[in-house]
Simulated scan of single mutants.
Amino acid sequence: MKEWETELTRWRAELNIPFQLRVDPAEISPEDVDMLVLNPVAGIRDLAPYRGVKAVQSIWAGVEGLLANPTLPEEPVLCRMVEPGLSEGMTDYIVGHVLRHHLGIDRCVRESMAGNWAPAVPPLSRDRKVGVLGLGALGADAARMLARLRFDVAGWSRTAKSVDGVTCLHGAKGLDEILARSEILVTILPSTTETRGILNARTLALLPRGAVIINPGRGPLIDDDALLAALESGQIAHATLDVFNEEPLPASHPFWRNPQVTVTPHIAAETRASFAARVVVEQIGRMIRGEPLWHIVDRSLGY
């Protein structure tokens, strides 16, 4: 069974609603569709026949794949997915790897496997500066959780935001400020014209020497060559990467062979049908009642 067909089976079990629902494109004529609920990379790719739709709901948090689809109609409202499973999964991944690097778990494992008794007590979490680039729903949830664990957390966003327990910075000046303080840097930004390559030779050099990067956001946020150079020079001690400019990561890519890089296969967060189906049901109801939809994408910004 194709991956998208397996996904449809999961959604069928969750979407029990009193509306005319079709979860297989072959079951309904495009001109009869009011709302499209889409996986951006599976199932329907040619959206041109769906010119009459009122809304397009992505089942992913990121919508750059949909925005790059030349057949996406211009008229309907485009919505991204925000649901508790995505936020919780992303926060689990970020907190787990922040703690891993904060506590020096990799070093402990290496020394243990070598039979070495080599004490190295980490600082308290309150004395570890963590930066989070991106304070949307996912980034803000992770930043709040890190702050609850007593880390010294700062967050950065394009425009001013407020998150309890987090020092919030914004704009070009704020970006340089957060980089200069972040011993552990988490990137959870969308991929837009403004954020692609945001971690490059100049910005990586602003981080404290020996900083760690954790990127579960988007692969294009990082200039791969600049990161490899920073790892080689010791400017960056380690990079834990869940997303890449090309996926699956090609077997020939130097990230695979670099001991200072941890590769995880885009597992930080996944849309869970059990949660997301409730969002879809609510969106359908809001459309029928003529109410504003949730999480509308500003196409000019890309999120």
Rank of each mutant, 00 (worst) to 15 (best):
residue 3 E to F: 15
residue 3 E to V: 06
residue 5 E to S: 14
residue 10 R to D: 11
residue 13 A to N: 04
residue 13 A to E: 10
residue 14 E to M: 14
residue 14 E to R: 10
residue 15 L to H: 03
residue 17 I to K: 11
residue 19 F to C: 04
residue 25 P to G: 00
residue 26 A to L: 04
residue 29 S to D: 15
residue 29 S to F: 12
residue 34 D to V: 04
residue 38 L to R: 07
residue 39 N to M: 11
residue 40 P to W: 10
residue 41 V to T: 15
residue 45 R to K: 15
residue 48 A to I: 04
residue 49 P to G: 05
residue 51 R to W: 07
residue 55 A to L: 06
residue 58 S to I: 14
residue 60 W to P: 02
residue 66 L to F: 04
residue 69 N to L: 07
residue 73 P to T: 14
residue 75 E to I: 02
residue 75 E to Q: 13
residue 75 E to P: 01
residue 77 V to D: 15
residue 79 C to V: 07
residue 80 R to Q: 13
residue 82 V to N: 13
residue 90 M to V: 07
residue 91 T to H: 06
residue 96 G to T: 12
residue 101 H to P: 03
residue 104 G to D: 03
residue 110 R to D: 09
residue 113 M to S: 14
residue 115 G to V: 12
residue 116 N to C: 08
residue 118 A to C: 07
residue 118 A to V: 05
residue 121 V to T: 07
residue 126 R to K: 02
residue 128 R to N: 09
residue 129 K to I: 10
residue 131 G to D: 09
residue 132 V to F: 08
residue 138 L to H: 05
residue 138 L to R: 13
residue 139 G to F: 11
residue 140 A to G: 15
residue 142 A to R: 13
residue 142 A to P: 13
residue 147 A to M: 07
residue 148 R to C: 11
residue 151 F to Q: 00
residue 153 V to P: 00
residue 158 R to V: 03
residue 160 A to K: 15
residue 162 S to V: 11
residue 166 V to Q: 02
residue 174 G to W: 05
residue 177 E to R: 07
residue 177 E to V: 01
residue 178 I to S: 05
residue 179 L to M: 13
residue 180 A to H: 06
residue 182 S to T: 10
residue 184 I to M: 00
residue 188 I to N: 03
residue 188 I to K: 02
residue 189 L to Q: 04
residue 189 L to S: 09
residue 189 L to R: 11
residue 193 T to K: 09
residue 193 T to F: 13
residue 196 R to I: 14
residue 197 G to Y: 05
residue 200 N to M: 13
residue 200 N to L: 12
residue 204 L to R: 02
residue 204 L to V: 00
residue 206 L to H: 00
residue 209 R to P: 00
residue 209 R to Y: 10
residue 210 G to K: 07
residue 212 V to D: 01
residue 213 I to C: 05
residue 214 I to A: 04
residue 214 I to N: 00
residue 215 N to T: 04
residue 215 N to V: 03
residue 217 G to F: 03
residue 221 L to S: 06
residue 222 I to W: 05
residue 223 D to F: 05
residue 223 D to T: 10
residue 224 D to T: 06
residue 235 Q to H: 15
residue 236 I to W: 14
residue 237 A to H: 10
residue 237 A to Y: 08
residue 241 L to W: 02
residue 242 D to I: 05
residue 244 F to W: 12
residue 248 P to H: 06
residue 252 S to C: 07
residue 252 S to H: 08
residue 255 F to M: 03
residue 255 F to R: 00
residue 256 W to I: 07
residue 256 W to A: 03
residue 258 N to I: 00
residue 258 N to G: 08
residue 259 P to M: 06
residue 263 V to W: 11
residue 265 P to N: 12
residue 267 I to A: 12
residue 272 R to A: 14
residue 272 R to E: 14
residue 275 F to M: 04
residue 280 V to Q: 09
residue 283 Q to A: 11
residue 284 I to D: 01
residue 285 G to S: 10
residue 285 G to F: 02
residue 286 R to W: 14
residue 288 I to A: 15
residue 290 G to R: 14
residue 290 G to D: 09
residue 291 E to D: 03
residue 293 L to N: 12
residue 295 H to A: 15
residue 296 I to G: 09
residue 297 V to I: 05
residue 297 V to H: 03
residue 297 V to E: 08
residue 299 R to F: 10
residue 303 Y to S: 03
